Amino acid sequence: METPNTISDETRDVLVHLYDYAYLARHPLLTRYQHLLGDNIAVAVQRLRRLVLDTIESLQPRSSDQAGNAIHRARAYVILYNKYVLGQDTAALEQELSLGERQIQREQRRAIDALAFALHERLTVLAERQDANHTHDALRQEIARAGTASEMFDVVDEIEKALASVTALAQQYDVHLEWRTDVARIAVPGFPSLFRQLLVAALSGAVRQPQARRIVVRLRRQRDGMQCSVTLVWSPTDAPALDGFPPDTCRALAEALGTELRIDQAKGRCCLAIVLPIPKEEYTIAVVEDNEDLIGLYSRYLSRHGYRLVGLTDSTTAVERIVELAPDAIVLDIMMRRVDGWELLQRLKAEPSLWQTPVAVCSVLNEPELATSLGADLYLRKPIRPTELLENLEQLLR
């Protein structure tokens, strides 16, 4: 079992043999922590030496140190660096620090104790990080084995299932759960089981927080997606020092789910927000255009923004096809063979099922007034970029 004296003795021993590869290769400190430093002995020795040197550097005085602490840190750093890194002897240290031999010995013991403590802390952090990585890897493998498939799922339903799973735990910790939403049931694309497990992990982690008094789960629609938030509420007088919240499991599940976690902490509360994408409503756009390449360009771009584009290159049958499609909007070229856009526009507006369907006229001609007089809702001069077409369609469909 490690004791403070053992750690300090081992640290002193490493310092004395800092550049002795053969000695460090069989040192107890390296043997005990080789699983953190690397399986290859040569690499492990280099990493141990680097870790010791970095830890020595971390002992330099900080601007926030009080005067007394700053003096001790400065002496500790000079002794450790000059003696064990540069190889300076005790006499030179006495002269540089203006201290006697006994004072140097006392400061050296303090310096080694401080280094041993800092080194032990760093090794502990490395061990915790490795354990967390192993947990994440195991979780990812389990998710992959489950073969979860993306599907449309009801967010409200999954939230209510998650709340039911942690109700008993919340009662055990005397934490009050609240569920609020002004959103009707809505389906989003994704992985329902992963979302539910993410929410269960967040809720159970929140319930276990010592200062938690109340946990509010809220679902609301925002511009960038559907946001489900888990908010811890505690007394403003309690110190908001959270212990491992959100749990590492949440981050691994969020990564697998492909969603975003946001943390917002303020006095008396901490909010973990899970953002889910909202599928945009798909609009059907009929494009009457005899240039197939242009139709393809528009289709590829608009399909990424929630639009289904149907190209109609034959103006003689366009009206009949549009009646069948019942599109949300129509984009109409003017200069076409056999039946031009002006005639088509008049026919479209004469159809009882289409007279309210918005029409955007796109042409190289400069005739916006004529288009408006025949019932067009928008006039766009060619050439028109896909981004510009998207902006105008969004305006047209509001």
Rank of each mutant, 00 (worst) to 15 (best):
T3W: 10
I7P: 01
D13C: 12
D13V: 10
L15G: 05
D20M: 11
A25G: 00
L37A: 05
A44T: 03
L53M: 07
T55V: 08
T55A: 07
I56Y: 03
L59F: 10
R73S: 11
R75W: 08
Y77D: 06
V78M: 11
G87D: 06
E96Y: 11
L99A: 11
Q105W: 09
A111F: 05
I112S: 01
Q130R: 15
A132G: 14
D137Y: 09
L139E: 12
R145N: 12
L163S: 01
L163T: 00
V166R: 01
L169R: 08
A187F: 12
A187H: 11
V188D: 01
V188F: 03
V207S: 05
R213I: 02
V217M: 02
R221G: 09
T231L: 03
T231H: 01
L232Q: 03
V233G: 04
F245Q: 04
R251A: 10
A252T: 15
E260H: 06
Q265W: 05
C271P: 08
I274E: 01
V275C: 06
L276G: 03
Y283K: 14
Y283H: 12
A286C: 07
V287R: 07
E289N: 06
N291M: 05
E292G: 11
G306T: 05
G311K: 13
M336A: 05
R337V: 08
R338G: 04
R347I: 04
R347W: 10
W355P: 01
V359P: 00
V359Y: 03
A360P: 10
V361G: 06
L365A: 09
N366A: 13
A371S: 11
L374Q: 13
A376T: 10
P383M: 05
E391W: 11
